[in-house]
Design a protein around this nucleic acid. Structure first.
Lengths: 340, 340
DNA sequence: CTGTTAGCGCCTTCAG
DNA sequence: CTGAAGGCGCTAACAG
């Protein structure tokens, strides 16, 4: 920097001023030009370590995640946070904890030592978490998880609206007898989606108690078994809503085995919009997308704008429907005689 | 740090020495203890920004990746690099380029400004890349890609051995008539796998020219179509090897439609070991795993040990077979009459 | 074995 | 509109 100043015939101070032009200083255009030329000529780049030391900030966000290699999830959260951060000149320092408590604690300490400007904590599968107290020393936003007393602002998928949207996909096509093969009963997501499902049914003038709802576990197997169970029923529903895309895959298999076509004989809807699953199966699956990318982006955005103190305890982002070809009009006479 | 020294009754220098005990200094145990006590009592933690400025290194590796949210790929590479880095006290600064040239250039500059100790450049799908010249300013390793003159050390999956392993899964079960539904013909991976396939065939005493090989494109659709093509053939092979797991999924669908069971009627082998696909479909798919995690880990390991100058231009990591239940003994009489 | 001293490169009041 | 000076927190010669 001293060199630049020398070449431009100004002091290092002036160089600093023109480089970090923050509006509070007024440097003559001529001088500015000379400085820029010198910077260019010398290939000068400011030393970030020195800036960090001086300014106490690093343009860096620490991202602590359960498991980076789990899809759909961390990758998208990170991608969203990354894109927002990148657009504002910040970068992401990522830590993968594999849910290990000691790692989480060490990660927070280390990130704090490295003077990250903020922390994003993201979990795979919405759940309650308890974080080391130290996170309070820096602005923090939780993605897809929350703390006991909502002590830290968080962003969550709006599963209730998602459940409504998924159901609506079937309702809009004219279905009036739909089965819901839910995910694992205990999960936060499951409860929200089921509630949304019932709301949509009721809003369409259908009695939720007359529709079939059976509990699954988010695995393809349960989608398969549950669908087979449905097939043994006298009145096969015209539409099947699955807890997630994997369960929908199971439903596809069971339906194919039974010689039933999608969507001609039965319509199927998933949840998650999990690539490449949904686009690779035939027909492509109608589903609802979880806003992982958006949540990551939202978190980084709030953090970078430095307005985390005025944030509501919980923010919900919508799960948009992703209609594809697995939903069609209901078959007129979908009645089947029980097999056996 | 001055406070710590004061509390322990020593100079800041001494504090630095005991904290960074590098063996070159000898501090009396008593003094060390006093320093540690003071550190503990004050909750002192060294300021990384200051250390970075002073030592010119940051215990940080920059990871530049095509697309972080693409599975199977960047997530695992990052997870591997992360685990290795973490075990040595380093962290990862990740940048997602979406293959944009300007972003790649900016990323390298920014990472260099931030004084990363090393850079890992990872691509989705092995291919040749050209990097900004500036990467040369810091140790760099390429993952799943390579440069024109092999100017930068890289680590790649051993696709030839992988192709052999995949084929061997079928051969070991007793198959002598196998079809290979390849991935996109132009791809580096496709060529290696095909070569390995032929080697395995030859090594088993089979004439590669008598086996059927048809080109696909890595999508489920092509697996589906190609398998249907096979079904129209008088002699259906007893084993089908697919270019990747998605194509295998297509094969599953085509086989199910034709009323053929896996592995009783036909055995199927995939490639990639893509979760959750391979474990969620029935039967679970026998496949070959791409060593993304290992490549990431390997890259970080070499970089951190500071021995990148003595590295061979290319290092191949094995693709281990992942046998599951989609392979069984060949059917005695798999002959079918053409379905016209 | 321990303390003194001098920066690492930058930002930022405060004077001019 | 520009320059001088001090210091962010730490490390590494160099003395003692």
């Amino acid at each position: 920097m001293a060199d630049v100043g020398r070449l431009a015939g100004v002091s290092p101070t002036t160089v600093s001023f023109v480089i970090n032009a923050d509006g509070t200083q007024t440097i003559s255009p001529a001088t500015q030009q000379r400085v820029f030329d010198a910077v260019e000529q010398l290939g000068y780049r400011p030393n970030r370590a020195a800036q960090n030391l001086r300014t106490q900030q690093t343009s860096t966000i620490g991202v602590i995640t359960d498991e980076i290699a789990v899809e759909p999830f961390a990758g998208q959260v990170i991608a969203g946070a990354h894109d927002e951060a990148w657009s504002q000149g910040s970068m992401l320092l990522v830590v993968n904890t594999m849910r290990s408590r000691p790692v989480i604690e060490a990660a927070v300490e280390d990130l704090l030592d490295r003077q990250v400007d903020a922390i994003i904590f993201a979990s795979a599968g919405t759940r309650r978490v308890t974080l080391p107290a130290a996170v309070a020393r820096v602005p923090t936003v939780l993605v897809s998880c929350f703390t006991a007393g909502n002590t830290i602002p968080c962003v969550l998928p709006d599963e209730v609206a998602g459940g409504r949207a998924a159901t609506q996909l079937l309702l809009d096509a004219g279905h009036t007898r739909v089965a819901y093969l839910t995910g694992a009963p205990g999960a936060w997501a499951t409860r929200g989606r089921l509630r949304g499902h019932r709301e949509a049914l009721a809003a369409a003038g259908l009695d939720p108690r007359e529709q079939v709802v059976v509990p699954g576990n988010y695995h393809a197997d349960s989608g398969y078994e549950l669908t087979r169970g449905l097939l043994r029923t006298p009145h096969l529903p015209t539409g099947i809503l699955c807890g997630n895309d994997r369960m929908a895959l199971g439903a596809y298999l069971a339906l194919a085995e039974a010689g039933l076509r999608i969507p001609e004989d039965v319509s199927v809807v998933g949840y998650d919009d999990q690539d490449p699953l949904v686009t690779e199966i035939r027909p492509p699956l109608s589903t609802v997308r979880l806003p992982f990318y958006e949540m990551g982006r939202w978190a980084a955005g709030r953090l970078l704008s430095g307005t985390t103190d005025r944030l509501p305890p919980r923010t919900y982002l919508t799960c948009p429907p992703s209609p594809r070809r697995s939903v069609g009009p209901p078959r007129i006479i979908p009645v089947r005689t029980p097999t056996l």
